[in-house]
Design a protein around this nucleic acid. Structure first.
Lengths: 124, 124
DNA sequence: CAGGATCCTTTACGATACTG
DNA sequence: CAGTATCGTAAAGGATCCTG
């Protein structure tokens, strides 16, 4: 009987690599963390609200990132029938599960700065 | 006395955003997670070992990613004086602290697949 | 063996203008 | 308001060849 080879030595768990690739693909781009962080506050925000909140983003990028995130079930887009159309974006329950990931990343970043005395860049 | 404004409502903690940006910058690129995951097994690996382990990477990219990671204190490069030079790469203690981040990311990716029955792509 | 140099393709990102 | 269209730049990534 042929024994399943365990390639933990030379080829570490491909499933894991795949999973990481998935997550990072979903969170790829320059703005997703920022948008997600904003929406995680729990409020429903409109397109222009987000343009204001997410500092520096343009409407094109915002639009694209929001579409990606909707496709990936991280946020929900709701069109209200008001006179000039209004659209609300809010995070999904599933989207909220990313908070553990984001927390770890933020924590590590903070520790990193502390460790290497990287001077805190100006914020405004 | 002027009270420090807390902008947790409209401008969520910039420090946090900064920290996230830092981390993601350090882990940016297509290969760092993969390389890191490989080196986290704890063995010292040579350049060519890594080319073999990190499936699909070319020498140029590997070289560049390794340099980045060394600059960021995640790995250590050691040159041995053998006849044709040999170089060993190994993860640092600091590099190992990334495991919590990577674990969360991997975990989330696995859950994501499970939730949405995303068909597991062929591995080989 | 460990990489650097070169060249080329692709993707990401951004500014500006425009539409229902 | 909520985007899309168009255009242009820059960065990322890859293939191939070359060197100490």
């Amino acid at each position: 009987m042929k024994k399943e080879p365990e390639f933990n030595n030379n080829r570490i768990c491909e499933k894991r690599i795949l999973a990481i690739k998935d997550t990072m693909e979903i969170l790829s781009g320059k703005w997703k963390f920022h948008i997600l962080g904003t929406l995680m506050l729990g409020e429903k925000l409109r397109f222009m609200d987000l343009v204001r909140e997410v500092d520096g983003i343009g409407s094109k990028m915002l639009s694209k990132e929001l579409q990606d995130m909707e496709m990936n079930h991280l946020i929900i887009r709701t069109v209200l029938n008001t006179k000039p159309v209004t659209v609300e974006y809010q995070i999904t329950e599933h989207g909220k599960t990313l908070s553990s990931v984001i927390d770890e990343i933020a924590k590590w970043g903070i520790d990193y700065r502390a460790k290497f005395h990287k001077k805190t860049e100006q914020i405004d």
